[in-house]
Design a protein around this nucleic acid. Sequence first.
DNA 1: CACCCTCTCGACAGGGTGTTGACTTCATCA
DNA 2: TGATGAAGTCAACACCCTGTCGAGAGGGTG
Lengths: 248, 248
Amino acid sequence: MNPASAAETAPPSSGPAAAKAAPDDAAQGVPNRGRRAARPSGDERQRAILVAAERLLGEKDFADVTIDDLARGAGISRPTFYFYFASKQAVLLTLLDQVAHEAEKRTADVFSDLSAAPSAAWRKAIEAFAGTFAAHRGVSVAAAAARSSEPELAAEWATLTNRWIDATAAAIGAERDRGASPAGPEPRLLASALNLLNERVITAALTGLEPTGPALRAPALPGAVEDTIETLLHIWLTSIYGAVPADP
Amino acid sequence: MNPASAAETAPPSSGPAAAKAAPDDAAQGVPNRGRRAARPSGDERQRAILVAAERLLGEKDFADVTIDDLARGAGISRPTFYFYFASKQAVLLTLLDQVAHEAEKRTADVFSDLSAAPSAAWRKAIEAFAGTFAAHRGVSVAAAAARSSEPELAAEWATLTNRWIDATAAAIGAERDRGASPAGPEPRLLASALNLLNERVITAALTGLEPTGPALRAPALPGAVEDTIETLLHIWLTSIYGAVPADP
DNA sequence: CACCCTCTCGACAGGGTGTTGACTTCATCA
DNA sequence: TGATGAAGTCAACACCCTGTCGAGAGGGTG
């Protein structure tokens, strides 16, 4: 049995390492970044830990996941876990890196056609934002939670959201420059607030138990998520393109 | 078994009507989450724990505060702590109750003069919101952080913010009824999003600045907090009173 | 074959949580 | 007054989780 592949219930028998043969693993089409071995390679083990972590984060809170869970999920012992990661947080950090990397692709050309159809473009941006969170619900929720007690995680999260904020601020500035949008708060300040708005509303929707309004309380209702996105879009559009009315 | 732990640490499978309060907490609006009051020295001890907790939360993360810290801060031993509170979380819950109780007063008449000067009224509301957070920075930040792993805390936080959301939604509905504001997203949906916006932006400001001291009162940059509030107000006003522009 | 380098885990140390059971105080009442 | 029982207190314990150490087991390489 190969502990790296799908062996879920890790055999606690430490005696004979059963996974011994498996000689021609590298003969296949997938080159494994140069390293190959009879017993599962370090790369495979490391990936197994990450896979186990993402699966466990779909089942329970990050705080409730122990290092033993991670290790057994990857078919190794707890001390061996420390050969690959310094801590639980380091695993989450790596996972967050992956999400950030994927998010970069997803949001690359989001603001390309702003002048043609602003409303549609902003909607695309918000949906890209929400889609990135939703596609990695466990990691997003865990990172948002652990952020407050883990400075490294907070820093990584900050750089991730700063990318969005920078892009948003640039887009707002461009809209003002071409006269499509009136003056208002400093673009970066407005962009920060709007992105924090999205972050909070979306994580609230993802965690479920939050005060996000009647629509999200009953997720069975069709259109609940669409209503939320529609509300976000309304706030983005009015705050970017609308002017503050004067008091009577 | 302790009298306190019997009441507070509710097993998830136990009776649903578990929040049966002790008969002696009718003197205040704050439910008694600790021990059932009996001896004055006991009350003082309980209060000493709460005071120590709020002080410690001004110095370090909630996760870094141990029960031993709390106990020693109150001049008792660790086991004695359990006579008064079932857990660290129960202490934070009680602190959050106090904040909620105080917040209720603070935000009672915030929307009274909306029709006279809408902009000024909404600003007052946002400042009341921010002021409540800032006045209890440690508790707010700790509760926002622990919320994700403590369902009871999440529920308490939800009822707290739901009060604001209800008031906001009612005010938005009133503005629409009197013709001051155009149609838009469902009032409660919009109110939820706007309140989550405030929560996130304000906690970000609270955690981002100095770890100690009244962050909102004396920020590093003079005017930084005013700018943030101004940005929030801009988003509130435009999203409540502005209409979404049509795409060309 | 000898050597090293990657990889593995049993065993330990340490710190945190929550519980137990014996003990002290003290108000109350027969 | 002395018995009673509830309120309050804590040393010691059981347990869980984290992180480390040192003794290895293999393959790759000369």
